[in-house]
């Protein structure tokens, strides 16, 4: 889980072009939107692309988005659950 979260942080910085943020600046439980990392709705779409591109996961229910993309930890939890489900 720790490795996955570290990888995700690097991928988020790269995919979202956050040139003034280092992966280690992103806390595991830091909210990614609004007062946390300050991501916006376009970033949310980029996160969906990131999951498809790197983890071959499609978000079946868009209403789950805010829950899945709350923090790096919630994304990692979602990926782990999805991978276990597909074993």
């Amino acid at each position: 889980m720790e490795n996955l979260m570290a990888t995700l942080k690097a991928q988020i910085v790269e995919q979202l072009n956050l040139q003034e943020v280092k992966p280690e600046d992103i806390g595991d439980d830091m909210p990614l939107f609004k007062d946390g990392l300050g991501l916006d709705s376009i970033d949310a779409l980029e996160l969906i692309v990131l999951l498809q591109q790197h983890y071959q996961i499609r978000i079946a229910n868009p209403e789950k988005g805010p829950e899945i993309f709350h923090s790096v930890r919630t994304i990692a939890d979602f990926i782990t659950a999805h991978q276990q489900q597909n074993k």
């Binding site: 979202l16 072009n17 376009i42 970033d43 779409l45 980029e46 692309v49 498809q52 591109q53």
Partner: peptide, 10 residues
């Protein structure tokens, strides 16, 4: 050709 980029699209 790969994954359409929402960030570019806007």
């Amino acid at each position: 050709k790969d994954f359409p980029s929402p960030a570019l699209f806007v």
